[in-house]
Design a protein around this nucleic acid. Structure first.
Lengths: 226, 226
DNA sequence: CGCCTATTTGAAAACCGTCAAAGTATGTGG
DNA sequence: CCACATACTTTGACGGTTTTCAAATAGGCG
């Protein structure tokens, strides 16, 4: 892929949209493109943070494994979104693994090149602060959910969050939903089964369609009032 | 309190230690000092993000309330640490409330003044990226714990985290621990009681001393292997 | 068709929350 | 200095939610 094409991709991302043509070219020159097959790992938790990544095409999931072997999905990222950044900024090993969920093209920028680039672009730094702030807000909100809410509410909120990012047709398996909600596949099936019976969602293999977003929101807010 | 004293406080914080005397004075000039009594609220979840805050003296807790009325403690902050920053950067309402846990002196900087200051100081922006990155790493780690680990492990990890920041003598009530671990006071008491019987910690009213950090770490890693 | 993965269902058990009651430190005011 | 209020800690019993284990069904692809 040409550097010009890379610049196109970077321009579309939230982080770099403020850059002018020259800056985009400079950054694109630093980026190497890599391709990954579905289920292939892009980086592993514990690896040295040598690269900063931006998704060009496809979808990536960021996961951590618990001591009991269960997988926890921190987030999905699509075109224009960055990942692996926390480790790059801190210079510590990646805190989670990243795995392609579809055929992917990924832009990789060497850690030090990116930090140097950033040191002279306060606007980009501010943009990154914004994105990190948003992710932190999100993580702390989820933390509260995990601490205090039932599985049904957690799943409802996750479905709503996914819907706000990807529309009402969600191509995820129950197992992926379970791994996002911090529960088991069986429980996720039982809960989505309940939602399906109540006409709130329509389920099929590997896919969930949100049929009644209003009811789902009511459910996410709290337990059905008596 | 004099601006010079404010500059002293700011200098000691991680975020601003890279500033020179002039810059510190400029920033200190923007800061207003406020005092709070124990249990007094500094800001409320949902408020407009008018100020960015730095703790000068005392301790602050940041909390969210769940739909069932339970309190969840996101973090404690001490001298030199900032809070309310996510809202300030995003321009959205504070995502959580902040409450003094002891008599506090707090520096408050107007949102726009701080953003203007930041726009011309890339070094400070990078420092903030670092801090946000650290907090994000922390939040995502806790998220995984909440999703996959038992209460005993969650509590063990919280005790270790607190110990790494404050030493082995922890002045927190069981209820505060429960609110950090996302459990109930009773369960927190039962679990700490168990740890106490095994000689891993020493408990007394409003205080926990970590007696055997190695055992606590083993416990935090996973359930006791058979 | 056959295989692999995803979904489904059932039953038992574990973990933890809830409710209730009582005991114990700490500080306050008389 | 004592009585009292308050907050923190402790204990027990019970029940509900969720996990675990096991087995069966069904969709999609070569």
């Amino acid at each position: 892929m040409s550097p010009a094409k890379n610049a196109e991709i970077l321009k579309k991302s939230l982080i770099f949209s403020s850059l002018n043509e020259d800056e985009l070219s400079a950054l694109a020159g630093l980026a190497a493109e890599r391709s990954f097959q579905p289920d292939e790992f892009i980086l592993w938790e514990g690896d040295e943070p040598d690269y900063f990544y931006v998704v060009a095409e496809g979808q990536v999931k960021v996961v951590k494994n618990s001591s009991t072997g269960r997988e926890f999905i921190i987030a999905f990222f699509g075109p224009g979104e960055m990942f692996g950044e926390v480790a790059v900024f801190e210079g510590k090993p990646y805190p989670a693994s990243a795995q392609a969920t579809s055929a992917c093209r990924i832009l990789a920028i060497k850690r030090q090149s990116f930090l140097d680039f950033l040191a002279t672009r306060p606007q980009v730094a501010l943009r990154i602060i914004n994105i990190l702030g948003g992710r932190l807000r999100d993580a702390q909100g989820r933390l509260k959910d995990f601490a205090g809410e039932r599985v049904e509410q957690r799943l409802a909120r996750i479905l709503l969050m996914l819907a706000s990012r990807m529309g009402t047709t969600l191509r995820f398996t129950r197992q992926e939903l379970a791994d996002m909600a911090g529960t088991t596949t069986e429980t996720a099936i039982r809960v989505t089964g309940g939602l399906s019976e109540r006409g709130i969602i329509i389920t099929s293999r590997g896919q969930i369609i949100i049929a009644d977003e209003a009811k789902l929101k009511a459910l996410a807010e709290g337990p059905p009032e008596i």
